[in-house]
């Protein structure tokens, strides 16, 4: 039976937005799929699962303009272990950027594609999400769900796909809403906006 695995490459995998995207994807996939959460101690275990799967989806946030180091470490390990395995799954990507512009994901996508090509994996495609930390709690969540559904269909049919999405609002409005969000978040921890804006680094 075809096996599909979804690997969460977020540093806070159990509590991540990547996990919320994974839940949607699993809901829309008609075939069985398994969710795996990366941590620094399970690289070998997850590598083994990946090499026996037909399809793998990497779900992760943009972090410092590229892929999270926990995922980078996993790719290093995969490359090393890959010598022992002949089969390679087709790999898809779901990447979410906290900033509004999905274009900010492009370098991270290039990095994954470079790794896949170097190591003989087939690249299946990408869902590139801008405003990815906010969109699921906004009135635009239906948009991203629709894109995930489209991606699930492509995965099932083994099609190559490239989808991009982000909130259809102005950058100015995104900044205002984002800043309000963080102000409230800080306030819930007893921090004022002025305290959060401190210039001091220690």
């Amino acid at each position: 039976m075809d096996q599909t695995i979804i690997i969460n490459g977020s540093h806070r995998a159990p509590l991540s937005n990547s996990r919320r995207y994974t839940k949607y994807l699993m809901k829309f996939l008609k075939t069985d799929s398994t969710e795996l959460l990366l941590n620094k101690n399970n690289y070998d275990e997850i590598s083994k699962e990946l090499f026996s799967a037909q399809t793998a989806i990497l779900v992760f946030p943009l972090y410092v303009d590229c892929i999270p180091s926990i995922l980078l470490g996993f790719l290093n390990r995969l490359e090393k272990l890959g010598e022992k395995y002949k089969s390679r799954p087709t790999v898809y990507i779901i990447i979410n950027c906290g900033f509004i512009e999905n274009e900010q994901n492009e370098v991270a996508i290039s990095i994954i594609k470079f790794f896949l090509k170097k190591n003989g994996f087939k690249y299946g495609g990408v869902l590139s999400i801008g405003s990815g930390e906010a969109i699921l709690d906004s009135p635009f969540r239906g948009m991203v769900r629709g894109k995930i559904k489209k991606m699930a269909q492509a995965i099932e049919h083994g099609e190559t796909i490239c989808i991009k999405t982000q909130m259809p609002i102005s950058k100015w409005f995104f900044v205002q809403a984002g800043n309000k969000y963080w102000e409230i978040k800080g306030s819930s921890h007893g921090k004022t906006k002025i305290e959060m804006k401190t210039m001091e680094i220690k």
């Binding site: 590229c66 980078l72 990095i111 470079f114 790794f115 950058k171 984002g178 963080w182 978040k185 680094i201």
Partner: peptide
Amino acid sequence: VRYGCYDVAFKTMLERCLPLQQPFLRI
């Protein structure tokens, strides 16, 4: 350089520079 990215140790160090930034956004 690994796959066009910093290797893991360097990338980890850069990720841990988050305190240099504020949560607040700008254009």
